[in-house]
Design a protein around this nucleic acid. Structure first.
Length: 494
RNA sequence: GGCCCCUUCGUCUAGCGGCCUAGGAUGCCACCCUUUCAAGGUGGAGACACGGGUUCGAGUCCCGUAGGGGCUACCA
């Protein structure tokens, strides 16, 4: 069996609408998406809302938004429609019911009337469902049904023998049938379980390859048997490895027990958290693609379209991976560094505005380039460069501990500051190169080290100990504003 | 507990029997550059889980052990 003998390639991502999109789900979707694009196939979004209790309103929009932000286009789905809709399972109930009952008629499944209490008892006894209704006399079943007794439809799993299946990532996998249960296919509320629903849909939607997380591997034999019972041609299956917590222990957490990064901040796991934290979609995509798969040629940084050309599900590493979040920081900084300046400025604007700064586009366009090599995330711009956008009158001079440089006191600081003003005023050309030369001369002249003079200016003008280069900063701020801030600092020393 | 899957530097990975005294990246450390912070450059420490086989030869194949992950619902 090869990976490409089914054409066209049609892959679906089938999340449950249980809230915001988790990065683990996105990674699974991404690998499927990459494979579909590689083969010129279609990528379908299907919503699996068969568990009414877990459905969260608004989830579908969140899922769509996540894909939109990442730039992963969807060919068929709830929003884009398509020839095999509807793409929301709760709107396809009739289909599942029809096939579940068909299986009963064929003797491949049966109605089970076990009550919740009965089931609870069996569970306590320690050995799952004991198949007590599997061979129930048809007349007895009819009688129970006519009495209005609730029932579920269970699959008649072979009691003996083995079932083997081919997983594109791991190869042949074999299970003993006696280990498997008579799994519920249709619940008493008329909704199907995942086991039945995904098969019915994948068949009707002509899915060629089922890509899903490894936690589905144990039910792989069940699914194989259901395909056979239904008499449909099976698609290929690829069970993708999952993301583990950064310490390698347990599946990457969602809400509870969120893993904290080394600096104490919580690690982003929902797509909206990546957005909020200031990551670039291209960086997130690159980051995710590098886990469990690699580009080759020792290349770590590549575009999505480059990845598409090389991607293959059979190359995916079968092992689960600890979530290498530190690499995302690096990748993000690399993407920011090489980003187009206008694009970067466009991303920075809402971030700075969100922090309360009145952003001037022209100024931001000049600030962005000097920020590129210093930002890990977009949000870093707030602390690093917010001072550029302090409106007149808003800028507050720094406290003494920031203003005073090494071996300098109030007197020395004032001396440097006061001497700087005429230097700035004298400069016809206010480029940072000219400033550098002029202030180097000043330092020599008044007997201070370059670092002392430059540092004092930096603190006075930015209000920070750490900032973009002082002279480039003053060049952008302009003479008048630079002098104003220096005077402000002087006054604060009175 | 039972079943299934997985196992190379801290982490993400390359490796598909000889090219491996195991390569890259990240993180860490040092040095260089330097007006701060970065970026960049150079260098360093750092791994084939263990035990048996198979083979002229094993990180690469097989078995076992250990460790990790998952499943064991009228959740997906």
């Amino acid at each position: 069996m090869t990976a490409d003998d089914r054409q066209p390639v049609r892959i679906r991502y089938a999340p449950s609408p249980t809230g915001p999109q988790h990065i683990g789900g996105i990674r699974t979707a991404l690998f499927g998406w990459l494979f579909a694009r590689r083969h010129g196939g279609q990528f379908i979004l299907r919503i699996e809302d068969t568990d009414q209790k877990r459905s969260v309103p608004g989830s579908i929009e969140m899922i769509q938004d996540a894909f939109d932000w990442l730039g992963m286009d969807i060919d068929e789905g709830p929003r884009q429609g398509g020839p095999f809709g509807p793409y929301i399972q709760s709107q396809r109930l009739k289909l599942y019911q029809t096939w579940a009952h068909w299986l009963v008629e064929q003797g491949q499944a049966y109605k089970c009337f076990a009550t919740a209490e009965e089931l609870a008892q069996m569970r306590e006894a320690g050995s799952g469902y004991d198949r007590r209704y599997r061979d129930l006399d048809p007349a007895a079943a009819k009688r129970l049904e006519s009495q209005g007794q609730d029932y579920v439809i269970r699959f008649k799993m072979p009691l003996t023998g083995q079932t083997s299946g081919y997983d594109m990532i791991r190869g042949e996998v074999t299970f003993d049938n006696e280990q498997l249960q008579d799994t519920v296919l249709l619940k008493s509320d008329g909704f199907p379980t995942y086991h039945l629903a995904h098969i019915v849909d994948d068949h009707h939607m002509k899915i060629s390859h089922i890509t899903r997380a490894v936690e589905w591997l144990p039910s792989f034999p069940l699914h194989l048997k259901i395909w056979e019972a239904l008499g449909w041609e099976k698609p290929h299956y690829a069970h993708l490895p999952v993301l583990l917590n950064p310490n390698g222990r347990g599946k990457l957490s969602k809400r509870k027990e969120r893993f904290a990064a080394a600096d104490g901040s919580s690690v982003p796991v929902f797509v909206h958290e990546f957005i909020d934290a200031g990551y670039l979609p291209a960086a997130v995509l690159n980051f995710l693609t590098n886990i469990g798969w690699n580009f080759g040629d020792d290349r770590e940084i590549f575009s999505l379209s480059e990845a598409i050309e090389r991607f293959n599900l059979t190359d995916v590493n079968p092992a689960n991976s600890a979530y290498p979040i530190a690499k995302l920081h690096w990748l993000n900084s690399q993407y920011i560094q090489s980003a187009d300046v206008d694009y970067l400025a466009g991303l920075l604007k809402p971030v700075l505005q969100g922090a309360g700064y009145a952003v001037d586009d022209a100024r931001l366009r000049r600030v962005a380039p000097i920020l590129q090599v210093r930002l890990k995330t977009l949000n870093d711009a707030i602390a690093m460069a917010g001072f550029f956008f302090d409106e007149w009158g808003c800028f507050a001079p720094p406290a003494a501990e920031i203003l005073f440089q090494k071996k300098m006191d109030s007197h020395a600081t004032r001396q440097v500051l006061e001497a700087s003003i005429p230097v700035i005023e004298s400069l016809a050309d206010f480029s940072h190169e000219r400033q550098y030369a002029a202030f180097k001369d000043l330092a020599k002249q008044i007997g201070y080290k370059n670092g002392q003079v430059f540092g004092t200016l930096r603190a006075a003008v930015t209000g920070q100990r750490v900032s973009p280069p002082t002279f480039e900063t003053m060049e952008i701020l302009g003479k008048a504003e630079s002098i104003r801030r220096i005077k402000l600092a002087c006054d604060s020393l009175q």
